[in-house]
Design a protein around this nucleic acid. Structure first.
Length: 808
DNA sequence: AATTAGTTCATTTTT
DNA sequence: TGAACTAATT
């Protein structure tokens, strides 16, 4: 296909699209919902439609607002549209909800009516929020047992997503706990604003509030955005939904006539709206996503039209049939069946392992076999429900020499040194940012300890000045040691000097390097003998590189908004860099599609690596081969979801997402025994396994194949679920709070303790000694004792009844 | 101020 | 089990 914009015609834009896809591209007028099943080419539809709007319907690019959920998706979409329509695409707003809202808020903050909130506000992420709420809690002298940061923040976030401010919530508090929470919410908000900061949820909530407060401002944006497209609509929360309505709703005025004040008489008709999503892939309810937004679209927009995309261009029919079969179990779901003309392909391969180690070994061996058949490790992904499950795979993969990469876990921008460095930069841009300021005040150690901080805090409170102002007037603070005062003065002098540098418009990377140097931060790491600190220095080098790249080419950097650059908004400064970093976080996380780039000719064996990740992070990705692991009730579906229908349905959608990531081959596996929190637990197979059509799965190994155990003569039942393996050691008796332990307790009534039947020469594993070979066995059944050679750990005599030994 | 020994508590996390 | 946080020690 040609990429020359001049050759762009209606025909080329519809080329290669199926009928419903074409309809979605051509649609005009009423609100449109595109229900896009997994792999049905929705990104293609979105990009073609945008190009269509510009090229065929002559829409001004600046009148287009396209919302995605990740910056990566935004950057990709912008890129693809640019390929179609060329430079004109620069004027579009293609960004996340959060980025769009930041742009609006930075411009309009003063209309919000917060005294301290200015356009250089900081954006607080989860970690910053936690620090702030901790300050609030200690301020309120809350019992740290009953009121923990996590739950409070979650509670606040829920309310913000529902657009409920602190006063509203306080008014509705029904008990003392709610009242305390509401008070914490109020204090948290107050401190946020005092710090000239907002959190992620505020970005949306405050934008909605802005539009409510100032209808004329809302009107200017309604006027500007004539075409609004929202991707991943099933993941929107209520606040985001409200925002869309403010921009597109045709009947908003009737709902709320009081907001009409100040509206120009010549109001514009609502923008053309298209939302794209798939209710079956809604897996973020726990973060406030409200599946009703997409389910009720036709109700919310009565004249709406719906287009279904069911043809899948990614997977084999076998995989799709499996996915359909699972998701159909969800109730109240709108019917949709994915289909493919790619043929049935391979059967799904199933495997029941004895333990999670065996499961990982199976995966490893199988990947080995696949690579022998010409597949690259980068074609393979291993999915699991929780991050903790990655460990076993890592252990085994390291042992077998299989290259891999874990996606998720500790992200680059969450590392301590990166956050420290960014905290310096943030407080330079916004000295009111107390969280950042407190973070680096004594990092590295410069003799400003808790006592000094306390004295300054009290002084600031009494004088009703900010923390930073109090630091500058440290000499007046009562109860401050002279030594601390000297140290603070040194710190203030350094900050002032750095601030001048920023004010002079110095490049972000240069500021960063100076900060690291002048603060002594880098020196303190370099002087350390902790090997971790060497890595930290490297990471900081990386951050400087990121800043440099940004300074030199902000457009090429991920998710840049060229409209800003075009608009002659000077060259990006430190504040812009911080904003990018705050909202983009980790584009380097997910390895790009198996790179064909001959970037490194010195690495001919570059076959890429196997990708390990949670099912949640897998959303939106695809791989030729997928291993779906840990399919056990209590693991996946997660134990917390077992008793709750909506949650169980969300787990099922997660399974659906996982299955539909696979293009050619899908493996499903589970472990009969899995060690959770130290104690081995016996998990029954996932209910989702039973929902797969049996003829689609080729079971390589089943429960019946598992290592034989002597069954107690009185326990003839096939049902082994709930049995605990090995000795009821100290570890095993702890932790009766978890669901796994509860299942275990329920099983206690059944007297049975499987004892492995061993013979000399057998290979076994022991929980603490590892791999061993049986040398001799004495006694029978309950009294059998085996002598086992564990290599470097020597030969042990073990009473099989108690020893955590497994036959291999 | 920094190390260390206890204690607690364990989903998922696009921004 | 083990990481992550707190409290107590030197």
């Amino acid at each position: 296909m040609t990429t020359t914009p001049t050759a762009l015609t209606a025909e080329t834009l519809l080329e290669g699209l199926n009928d419903p896809q074409q309809q979605a591209v051509r649609h005009e007028g009423v609100p449109l919902l595109v229900v896009a099943g997994a792999g049905s080419g929705k990104t293609r539809v979105l990009t073609r439609r945008i190009a269509w709007l510009i090229a065929v319907r002559k829409a001004h690019p600046g009148s287009i607002l396209a919302i995605t959920f990740t910056n990566k998706a935004a950057a990709e979409m912008k890129e693809r549209v640019s390929e179609l329509v060329g430079n004109r695409a620069r004027m579009m707003w293609v960004s996340t909800f959060h980025s769009s809202c930041v742009r609006i808020l930075r411009k309009e903050v003063e209309h919000l009516g917060y005294e301290r909130l200015k356009s250089n506000f900081s954006i607080y992420d989860a970690q910053d929020q936690k620090r702030l709420i901790q300050l609030v809690c200690s301020d309120m002298e809350l019992d740290p047992r009953r009121f923990q940061p996590g739950p409070i923040l979650h509670w606040i976030s829920n309310h913000k997503n529902e657009l409920r401010g602190p006063d509203e919530v306080a008014a509705e508090a029904r008990n003392s706990i709610d009242e305390t929470y509401a008070a914490a919410y109020k204090s948290y908000q107050r401190r946020l604003r005092e710090a000239n900061a907002v959190d992620f949820d505020d970005l949306i909530m405050e934008t909605v509030r802005l539009f409510q407060l100032k209808p004329e401002i809302r009107e200017t944006y309604r006027r500007r955005f004539r075409h609004i497209l929202v991707d991943e609509y099933q993941d929107t929360n209520h606040a985001q939904y409200a925002l869309i309505h403010q921009l597109c709703g045709q009947d908003l005025e009737e709902h709320d006539p009081t907001t009409l004040d100040g509206l120009p008489a010549d109001r514009v008709p609502p923008a053309e709206l298209m939302v794209v999503g798939d209710a079956d892939q809604s897996i973020y309810a726990f973060r406030g996503a409200d599946i009703r937004n997409i389910m009720d679209f036709e109700k919310d927009f009565p004249d709406a039209r719906t287009i279904l995309l069911e043809q899948n261009y990614r997977s084999t029919q076998t995989i799709l049939t499996a996915a359909n079969a699972v998701i159909e179990r969800n109730e109240g779901r709108k019917p949709k069946r994915l289909w493919s003309d790619a043929g049935d392909g391979e059967k799904i391969v199933g495997y029941v392992a004895d333990t999670e180690h065996d499961e990982a070994r199976f995966v490893s061996t199988e990947i080995d076999a696949l690579t022998d058949q010409g597949l690259k490790p980068s074609d393979v992904a291993v999915f699991y429900r929780t991050n903790a499950q990655s460990r076993v795979f890592e252990e085994i993969f390291i042992r077998t020499g299989l290259p891999y990469k874990v996606v998720g876990g500790v992200r680059f921008y969450e590392r301590r040194e990166i956050r420290d460095a960014l905290a310096y930069l943030r407080m330079l841009v916004n000295p009111d940012d107390q969280v950042s300021l407190r973070r680096i005040l004594n990092t590295p150690k410069r003799g400003i300890g808790d006592r000094a901080v306390l004295a300054i805090t009290m002084f600031a409170d009494r004088e009703r000045i900010t923390f930073w102002e109090a630091l500058q007037r440290a000499a007046e603070a009562p109860g401050l040691a002279t030594r601390s005062q000297t140290n603070i003065e040194g710190f203030v002098a350094m900050v002032v000097e750095l601030q001048q540098m920023v004010a002079a418009g110095e490049r972000p990377d240069v500021v960063l390097e100076t900060v690291l140097d002048r603060s002594g931060y880098l020196a303190s790491l370099e002087g350390s003998d902790d090997p971790q600190d060497a890595t930290r220095v490297e990471n900081l080098g990386e951050l400087v590189a990121v800043a440099r790249e940004f300074a030199e080419d902000p457009v090429a950097a991920p998710s840049a908004d060229p409209a800003d650059v075009d608009a002659g908004l000077v060259e990006p400064g430190l504040a812009d860099f911080l904003e990018r970093v705050a909202l983009v976080a980790d584009s380097d996380q997910i390895p790009d599609a198996p790179a064909d780039d001959a970037a490194d000719p010195d690495a001919p064996e570059d076959q890429g690596v196997v990708t390990l990740m949670t099912l949640h992070t897998a959303k939106g990705l695809e791989f030729p081969v997928v291993f779906l692991t840990g399919l056990e009730d209590g693991v996946f579906p997660h134990s917390r979801a077992l008793g709750d229908k909506p949650e169980l349905e969300e787990e099922r959608r997660l399974a659906y997402v996982g299955i539909t990531r696979a293009r050619q081959r899908l493996y499903i596996s589970r472990a009969v025994v899995r060690s959770a929190w130290g104690a081995p637990a016996h998990n029954p197979g996932s209910r989702f396994l039973g929902e797969l059509p049996i003829d689609l799965v080729d079971w390589r190994r089943t429960e019946a194949d598992q290592t034989r155990w002597t069954r107690p003569s009185y326990g003839s039942s096939d049902d082994y679920s709930g049995n605990r393996l090995g000795a009821p050691n100290a570890a095993g008796r702890r932790n009766f709070s978890s669901a796994a332990a509860r299942a275990d307790a329920a099983a206690k009534s059944k007297p049975s303790r499987p004892i492995p039947v061993l013979a000399p020469g057998d290979k076994v594993t022991h929980d603490s000694f590892g791999l061993g070979t049986v040398v001799a066995v004495e006694g029978a059944a309950e009294k059998s004792v085996a002598s086992i050679d564990f290599g470097s750990d020597g030969v042990k005599r073990l009473l099989l009844r108690y020893a955590p030994v497994e036959k291999l």
